[in-house]
Nucleic acid binder design. Sequence first.
DNA 1: AAGTGGTCTAGACCACCGA
DNA 2: CGGTGGTCTAGACCACTTC
Lengths: 244, 244
Amino acid sequence: MLPPSDDRLPMHARLRDALASRIAALEWASGEAIPSEQELAKAYGVSTSTMRKSIEHLVREGLLERKQGVGTFVRRPSFDGSLFRWFNFEDASTGGGRTVPESRLIEREVMDATPEIASGLRLPEGAKVVRVLRLRLWAGKPVICEDLYLPHPLFEPFVTMDEHEIGPLLYPVYERAFGQVVTSVEDELSLGQADVVKARLLEVKTGDPLIVVERTSFGTNGTPIDWRRAYGRSDRFRYRVRLT
Amino acid sequence: MLPPSDDRLPMHARLRDALASRIAALEWASGEAIPSEQELAKAYGVSTSTMRKSIEHLVREGLLERKQGVGTFVRRPSFDGSLFRWFNFEDASTGGGRTVPESRLIEREVMDATPEIASGLRLPEGAKVVRVLRLRLWAGKPVICEDLYLPHPLFEPFVTMDEHEIGPLLYPVYERAFGQVVTSVEDELSLGQADVVKARLLEVKTGDPLIVVERTSFGTNGTPIDWRRAYGRSDRFRYRVRLT
DNA sequence: AAGTGGTCTAGACCACCGA
DNA sequence: CGGTGGTCTAGACCACTTC
């Protein structure tokens, strides 16, 4: 039942992994309730307190949501509103209104990593990567254009996947199709300029200032899963973050 | 012992508040160990598990740090090196080298809050605030210029404090002189332009693009402590953050 | 060896929600 | 009302660090 977990890990950590993979395997739909603490505790042969700790862990990670008196629910990023957990992007032109982001894949290919990409993904120089050029739109208007890189052997199938199968968010795809769960990200923001391609996609003039977000996302074991450089239109894009 | 806490709150929440205020009151120095779980549990007349939960809460908030087999330690931003905990600023021109940021207070005054400032500090409209105009330099070169606002009655003395007494970081001052411990911040980044004053201070041309960081910092009880709008030179300033 | 935090148990009772 | 999660207890044993 818990094959990928290390036996030396504490029970609650193994339970967390077990539940996480059941969630990743879509055993329960988004928003659906999982079995109660007591049922799960009995099923896994642990005390309710231990099961509780695992569930609390998953709640902190954003995979589950608890409602007192009701149950524990799967909370997966999707269209249904609230959360893009690490997508602290906001549409400045609509005052941060909650519009659904759209995603268009412009290019997908396998290429040799430049030194910059290799270092971002902690890959040896000369490794191959999957490159994705993507445009993101809010309310039909282009907001962000991003160059995105994935380690090659593993993510090769991504190049030919059906765009509809991919959808507007990539992290769920990494999880569903490649078994990679993103657990943390590192962002670095600076100022850049639109080159010809980005200017055309974002509908601005070449040379216009853009907000640049360089992001590395990390998996459960701390290895990078993707590295991207996103260019945001300064009039439509704000980046928000809460640090504790 | 726990006067500001609501009696209807769960015990672990009240304990958290009690410990937080003892930490804020500098009962233990930075890096110093607090009493063990069992001592604290006995002192407050609760079970170790309950005390444990309070401590775990404070660890998640970043006020404490636990080391197995050693103890639980106060973890507070300070001058002693490594951390500008929420200062994810980096000097782009020196490749992120560790230089000490310098701070110059340009103006300090009491003024009426604009609606924008009032909303940032969650104050009623028309409240008074302390305004600070500050320039921050890396390696002697101007990098960030910030407008900063503090709630008035409490921070009034800040206006006339000796600049040497204040030093390059404000959060420690809030703590030392006003008993306010910053536990979390919320940042929002966008793009702006240099007005005449900022252009002069930052040594750029009027109208040059600048990175704008709007930051609200929050205290232990979740109320805002300061609100600021920082303007960073795009060639010397990067903003970095890790999200877990 | 002594003391710390980390894990885990097997309960009890409460607060909340929905039928 | 019954079932859910939320709180709290009073322990036991383990893993780790320090002396």
